[in-house]
Nucleic acid binder design. Structure first.
Lengths: 206, 206
DNA sequence: AGTTGTGAACTCGTTCACAGCA
DNA sequence: TGCTGTGAACGAGTTCACAACT
C-alpha cells in the first residue's frame, strides 16, 4: 500500500485482505497502542512502522543457514531475506565440495567451524536445511553456540531445552493439510464413527 | 513407534511427544471414531492407519511443482514426498535451460504445456515455487486446469476463487514469528501504550 | 458521516474429572 | 487397576455493538 501511494486504510479494508473480522483486526492493532484515527482509519506508513517495531523487524537479525543443498541455497537467495532485518551472516555445510564456495556473497564454512562462526557473527537465528538425520545434532550445536531461535526444515521433531523456540516447516505436513481439507469439504459429513451409537438422548432440563 | 516395535501407547505418552494436554489429544482422536482400548491405550499400528485415512494419505495424490529453481528442485527430491501418497507427477518451468531436464526421474515440461500436463496426470495439488511476480498468474492457470489445492512458497497473497484452498509457506513470516517470541519473552511486559491514559474510569452500573 | 477502541456477550476449543470399560 | 471417552466447567479469543472522537 505504501508503494501504491495509499495513505489511509480502514480496519474493514485490511480485514478483507487478511481474511478476518474487522473487530478482531482492530483489537489486535490496538495492542500496538492505538494508532488509528477515528473517521479516517489507519495511516499506512505509520502502521507499517508500528507493526515492524512490534515484530522487532527494525533490528538487525543475523541468521545462520546450516545445510547448503538446494533448499539452503534457495533460502539464502530468497526474497524473504532482505525484508525485515534478516541477513544471512553464516552458511555452513559438511560437504567439502561446497565449503568455500560463495552463495549470495557469503562463503560457506565447514561444519566444524559452526560454533565459532555463530559466535563471531552474533547469530540469533538458526535455519536448519540439512537432511533429517543430521538435524537434531545440528540443533544441539547451534544451541551450544548460543542460538535461541531455530527454524527447522528437516521433517523431524527437534527436542530442545526450554527457552529455545523452534518452528517447524514441513512440506508433507502442509500437503496433508491440503488433502485433509480436500477430502472433508466444509459442511460435509463428520468422520464416520466406528461403532453404532444409540440415537442421541436429549438430556435437557424442561 | 511402529518401527521401534511399540504396539500400544497411552494418550499421555502421545501428548507429551506432541506437546499438548492428554485430554485434548483424546478428544481429537475420538473424532476418528474411538480407536483406543480402555486400560491399555491406543494400538499404534491401527492408530496410524486411522490417522492416515483421516488425512486421506492412503490415496495417491499427484502433485505438480511449478518453478524448478533451487526450491522446486529441493522439494521435488525432498523426503516429504514419498511419505503419504504424494507423488511429483509434473514439473514445469519457463526457463528453456531446465525444460527437458530430469529432476528425480520426472522431465521438466515447458510452462506452455502446464494445463495439458496437469489434466493428463489428473493433478490435485499445485506447488508454486516461482518468483513472486509469477505466482498469481501460475495460480490462475493451475486453477483453470482443475487444481483445487495450492501450496504457495512465493511471498505473495494469492487471490483465488472460493473453493480453492491455498496454503502459504513464507520464510520471512516464519522468521518474524521467531523474532516476535524472542523480543517478547513470555510473562514480559505488554507492548508500551503510545498515549498516556487517564486512569481507567470504572463505568459500571452500581 | 465515518471509523476507531473497547466493554460485554458469546463462541468454541481446552481442560477437568469421572463413569465406564478392558 | 489403568486408561479411554465424554459431559460439564472453564477460559481464551472473537464478535457485537456502541460511545467517543475526527
Amino acid at each position: 500500500m505504501v508503494e501504491r501511494g495509499v495513505d489511509h486504510v480502514s480496519s474493514t479494508e485490511l480485514a478483507v485482505v487478511v481474511g478476518v473480522n474487522p473487530a478482531t483486526l482492530r483489537r489486535d492493532l490496538s495492542q500496538l497502542g492505538s494508532y488509528g484515527t477515528r473517521g479516517s482509519g489507519y495511516e499506512v506508513e505509520r502502521l507499517l512502522g508500528q507493526v515492524g517495531r512490534a515484530l522487532a523487524v527494525d533490528r538487525d537479525w543475523p541468521v545462520v543457514i546450516v545445510g547448503v543443498g538446494n533448499l539452503g541455497r534457495a533460502l539464502a537467495r530468497s526474497e524473504g531475506f532482505g525484508s525485515g532485518g534478516f541477513r544471512v551472516a553464516v552458511l555452513a555445510d559438511v560437504n567439502p565440495a561446497v565449503v568455500g564456495t560463495e552463495v549470495g556473497g557469503v562463503a560457506v564454512e565447514p561444519l566444524e567451524r559452526l560454533e565459532a562462526a555463530c559466535q563471531r557473527e552474533q547469530i540469533a537465528i538458526g535455519v536448519i536445511t540439512t537432511p533429517a538425520r543430521a538435524s537434531q545434532s545440528v540443533a544441539e550445536r547451534l544451541i551450544a553456540a548460543g542460538v535461541r531461535s531455530i527454524l527447522n526444515f528437516a521433517p523431524v521433531v527437534l527436542s530442545v531445552p526450554s527457552g529455545v523456540v523452534v518452528r517447524q516447516v514441513d512440506l508433507s505436513a502442509e500437503l496433508q493439510v491440503l488433502t485433509f481439507y480436500r477430502s472433508r469439504p466444509p459442511g460435509g459429513p463428520p468422520i464416520q464413527k466406528a461403532r453404532a451409537k444409540a440415537p442421541k438422548q436429549t438430556r435437557r432440563s424442561p
